[in-house]
Design a protein around this nucleic acid. Structure first.
Length: 183
DNA sequence: TGCACGATGAAC
DNA sequence: TTCATCGTGCAC
């Protein structure tokens, strides 16, 4: 299994989002290695994308999005759930890919279909915010034999406030995967 | 210093 | 469809 290098993330966000499907998210903590196969993601393109947190400008919370690619942006939503994003493109571009669902591969307990549940099952919390994904304990890797995937495009979830950006097909998932959060 | 509002999930 | 629950951002 080969760990994705920083250059993987330093590319067009939609391309990164699509190529993250089928990859393995790996998190080592408390002596356990947890692995999940990414089956559903959403792309957040930058400050011009009204659904992206970075569209509000550089703040204490969103500064990670404005940082260099290949880092984790983990934030609390609705006061109780964590969501994990992968920062993409060059520093200052402020784009990211939200991981919405994974398929359990190793040491993953509980449901994983949804950004909050995914973080809970993978033991990801806000302490991992700004963590480098080109690291030994928290990273994304390409599985040995990656088979071709059929990718479905859909509008993003829960961003109705983003006007015209709410309709754009920036959500991607693996067709027929039983682990996606919503069809 | 106060307050409105979520990139959700679960219950009803 | 409704609600739990609180950090964040921005208005005052």
């Amino acid at each position: 299994m080969s760990k994705l290098p920083r250059s993987f993330y330093d590319r067009d966000t939609i391309l990164v989002a699509r190529e993250l499907l089928g990859k393995y998210l790996v998190h080592r903590s408390r002596g356990a290695e947890r692995i999940g196969r990414i089956v559903e993601v959403e792309a957040y393109l930058g400050p011009h994308d009204l659904a992206a947190h970075s569209s509000r400008g550089l703040t204490e919370r969103t500064k990670v999005m404005f940082g260099p690619p290949g880092h984790a942006y983990v934030y609390l939503i609705y006061g109780m759930h964590c969501c994990m994003n992968v920062v993409t493109e060059r520093e200052g571009h402020a784009s990211a890919v939200l991981l919405r669902a994974i398929e359990p591969v190793k040491n993953v307990v509980g449901r994983t279909c949804g950004p909050g549940l995914l973080c809970q099952a993978m033991h990801i919390d806000r302490r991992l915010n700004a963590h480098d994904l080109v690291s030994d304990t928290f990273y994304i890797a390409a599985p040995p034999q990656a088979k071709p995937l059929v990718i479905v495009k859909r509008p993003r979830i829960g961003v109705d406030y983003a006007r015209q950006w709410a309709k754009k097909p920036l959500r991607f998932y693996i067709k027929d995967s039983p682990f996606i959060s919503r069809p």
